[in-house]
């Protein structure tokens, strides 16, 4: 089989990703001791987005999937962004 799903991810790749996730967790805990005002949330969300990107791409194998999977993930995230964005159009300018 030459399909994408025949790709076996080596152990080392997962261990490297796990180390990166631990480092990012350390950074998010470290940066939280500084009061950055409204930026607290945005910095935390940016780091969390990087962490989830690693989990999705490697642990969840998305990097090795075909375009249909990637496109559907993007659509789901776009729907989530619309969901959040339109709620805030209402809430902030009420």
């Amino acid at each position: 089989m030459t399909d994408d799903h025949s790709h076996i991810v080596p152990y080392q790749t997962f261990v490297i990703v796990w180390c990166a996730l631990l480092v990012l967790t350390g950074i998010t805990v470290w940066v939280a001791q500084y009061n950055l005002g409204a930026w607290n949330v945005w910095v935390a969300l940016t780091i969390a987005t990087f962490k989830s990107g690693l989990v999705v791409a490697y642990f969840m194998h998305m990097k090795y999937e075909q375009w249909l999977f990637k496109l559907s993930l993007l659509s789901a995230l776009a729907i989530l962004a619309i969901f959040i964005g339109f709620t805030f159009f209402d809430v902030l300018y009420r």
Partner: peptide, 9 residues
């Protein structure tokens, strides 16, 4: 990964 920073940090 999102619950931890939003609620605890």
């Amino acid at each position: 990964i999102f619950i931890f920073p939003l609620y605890y940090l």
